[in-house]
Structures are given as C-alpha cells and as structure tokens.
C-alpha cells in the first residue's frame, strides 16, 4: 500500500489515543450511571461567562468549541498552502493555528479556575452526600443569597462563608429545603433537612480531588482528568505547531521540497479537535 511511513505511524498513534479517550469517556458514563442521584447536571455547573453576571449555561464552552474548530480550519488551510508550496501562506496559517490553540488553553485555565473556586456552595452530610439549598420554588440558592438576602449574588464570587452563618440562615427560613444535585435526586423538606443537618454536616465551597460542591466527588475527578488530559494534548499540539512554524520560517520544508511534516502534525491537531467534540457532548451536553 502506498502510504507514507510517517503518516501511517501518526494514524496508528491516533487510533491508540482514540481508544484511550474512549476508555476515559465510557468510564465517566459508567460512573455517572451508577451515581445518577448525586451526579451534577452539567448546565448547573458550568454557568459562567466572562464579564456577565448570572447563569449562562453552555455559552462559554460553546465559544471554546468554536475557537478549536476555527483553529482546525486554519490548520487545514496551512496544509493546503503547503501542497501549493506557498511558504508565506503556510507561515501565516500556522501562526493563526498557534494563536487559536493558545486562546483555547487560556479559556480552559479560566474554566478550571472558576470550577475550583466554586459557584453557589453546598452542604456535605456526615455520609459524604452533597446537598444544595433550594427555595420554595426549587431554585438553588447560593451562600451569598442565603446569608446576604436581597443583596446577595447568584454566585459566591470568591467570598468565604462561615458555616454557622449558612446554617443559621437555613434554620431561619422554614420554606427552604435541601436537594440532591442529580437528575432524579432526593428532596428533603425543611423539617427533614434540619434532622439531617443535626447528624453532623459541613459546608463545601469549590472543588478539589477530595470533594466538590457540585455533587459526587468522582465528577470533579473525571473533570480534572479528562479535560486535563485533553488540555495536555492541546498544549503539546501548540508546542509542535510552534516548532513547525519556526521551521517554515527557516525554509526547512522549502529545502526538503515538501510540507509533509505540516500534514502529519495537522493530523494530530485535528484529532485534538475531534476529541473535544466528544468531550463537549458527553461532559457538557448529555
């Protein structure tokens, strides 16, 4: 078969990498299925958009998806220009691809920051279950809204709350209840909720590997692991793209007579976009 050795090997690497990511995503689905009641609904977790107050589900991650698709397009344009041996055009499109990748990485850092910092806060029971505080209509309340009342924000905005203030506010409002974050999670009316709190409970703000305010602790672990592993791929891709860009400027591929290397790294870069398409669906949409 007439396929170039390097290209074939890149494809084989991508097949194995695709299987690795499938392993992660199916494991995520498996655990989510098992802990359905305490598994957070993604739209309730990723609600921030830079400079906008209030809940904006999906918009930010949609923007990140757009940026990555765009940088995939500039990569195809670079490969295309390489076939036509246009050194200047390859350089410009490579530069655009590097910038797209860098913006994506920055966006991901921003999202991690807000995920770790926390949004509304939650209460962890003695049996490690995470419960959200909701008003009579079932709207989830932030600690800020609980403690500051009308002056509070829908997000805690990095304010650290005192456990006793949060519990006192809950006790003083008999129509508030505790709800499990999952799709079919349990609902505890006020009297029942007070009994649960009496058995020992703590407030949780933000997320780490041990616990998170959004729901089951595995949710945060999978979030860090899958988006982190994908982000590492993007970072590696940006480094490869930079090396390519540098060599295009030096005229390495002009002297070699072909831009095959741009094509091979291009395959890797599209694969990173491809994986994100699946992460977007299974982490944020489904």
């Amino acid at each position: 078969m007439r396929a170039e050795y390097g290209k074939l090997m890149m494809w084989f690497f991508l097949i194995s990498d695709a299987l690795t990511f499938s392993g992660f995503l199916t494991a995520y689905g498996f655990m989510r299925f098992k802990f359905e009641q305490s598994w957070p609904v993604a739209e309730a977790v990723f609600t921030h958009f830079p400079g906008v107050e209030g809940d904006q589900p999906l918009l930010y991650v949609a923007l990140m998806t757009f940026i990555l698709i765009m940088s995939s397009v500039t990569m195809v344009l670079a490969v295309n220009a390489g076939h036509e041996k246009k050194q200047g055009a390859v350089a410009w499109w490579m530069l655009a691809t590097i910038i797209g990748g860098a913006i994506f990485l920055g966006s991901q850092a921003w999202e991690w920051y807000h995920f770790i910092q926390g949004d509304k806060g939650a209460i962890e029971l003695a049996d490690t279950r995470i419960l959200k505080v909701a008003d009579a209509d079932g709207h989830v309340l932030s600690f800020s809204q609980m403690v500051h009342g009308e002056a509070g924000h829908a997000s805690n905005h990095e304010e650290e709350f005192n456990q006793s203030d949060v519990f006192a506010a809950f006790k003083a409002n008999p129509n508030w209840k505790l709800i499990e974050p999952g799709k079919a999670g349990a609902v505890y009316e006020h009297a029942e909720a007070m009994a649960l709190l009496g058995q020992g409970a703590e407030i949780v703000q933000g997320a780490n590997m041990h616990r998170n305010e959004y729901g089951h602790k595995l949710f945060a672990n999978f979030f860090f692991f899958i988006t982190g592993f994908h982000g590492f791929h993007v970072f590696s891709g940006v480094v490869f793209n930079f090396i390519l860009f540098y060599n295009v400027l030096l005229g390495t591929y002009e002297r070699r007579g072909h831009y095959g290397m741009v094509e091979k790294i291009g395959l890797y870069w599209h694969f990173v976009d491809l994986v994100w398409v699946f992460v977007f669906t299974f982490f944020y949409l489904v």
Binding site: M1, A3, E263, L267, H270, F271, D273
Partner: peptide
Amino acid sequence: IVMYFMHLKFEETFL
C-alpha cells in the same frame, strides 16, 4: 473532521 480535515476520504481505500 476525519473524512475532510484529516483527508481520510482522499487516502488509499486500504489505508
């Protein structure tokens, strides 16, 4: 993405 961006549609059938 696989067929067009990654050019697989235009490769050898065997590949």
